[in-house]
Design a protein around this nucleic acid. Sequence first.
DNA 1: TTAACAGTTGAACAAATGTTCAAATGATAA
DNA 2: TTATCATTTGAACATTTGTTCAACTGTTAA
Lengths: 127, 127
Amino acid sequence: MSERNDRQEFCETNVIHYDIVENVREKMPPEDPVYDVAELFKVFGDSTRARMICALTVSEMCVCDIAALLGMTSSAISHQLRILKQAGLVRNRRVGKIVYYSLADEHIRQLFTVAFEHVTEEKGGQL
Amino acid sequence: MSERNDRQEFCETNVIHYDIVENVREKMPPEDPVYDVAELFKVFGDSTRARMICALTVSEMCVCDIAALLGMTSSAISHQLRILKQAGLVRNRRVGKIVYYSLADEHIRQLFTVAFEHVTEEKGGQL
DNA sequence: TTAACAGTTGAACAAATGTTCAAATGATAA
DNA sequence: TTATCATTTGAACATTTGTTCAACTGTTAA
């Protein structure tokens, strides 16, 4: 996590395009939410967690079932579920010994949908 | 990156809800795109890169200016721009000594917009 | 040619991350 | 109670990752 950085090299002291830098500084979104967004994407940015989220998009599932579906140990899944829970992305409910997990927010589906559109369009980027 | 995993513990051999697991297995998106999506999110999931993308949302910028704006060295920025370039998220054009970078795709803005909505709504998640 | 400088690159290093393993909970059923 | 089992947890480990530093391109201008 990059915090403040006072280290200054060469190039940094004399900005080339002062007007552009100031313009962007004014108009770009405030710092804190950007860090939160990065944090959110970081949680999505692991293939195991991404697969778990895709699975939970279809149906509520217990730890054991997710582990079976993805071919991993319950321990590994549980660790990742904890991360998803802390990020507020999943909810859970307990029924006896079994804990069912489900998606906590509709934004998640939306983000994955747009991301899927992006990766399935074969490099047809528009300027 | 989690590849295949043949390791089986206890819980994995006897799936609790066979019907649910099979249902999800059928309906969840195919494997490969999910890995691509995770890869995309991983690129977004670093605060430096996220800040760079937010800056480029406002205006095209050169390496030096981005470094000045974010208070980092050009080297660090250049390394990250390479990652963004490889992911197909930024384009660049050279004008003399200066290299200008800009966003390559409209999906990026869209993804960040939705992500911002998510993080700014203070935990008001709907079921 | 030479000097200056924007940008890139590779090696090195510290910090963060995901999985495994073993042990511990917590709930059910005998 | 005891045994069983789904789940959680913490420590350990290997791997990945971001930044720094120094050296190197490539372009401009003297």
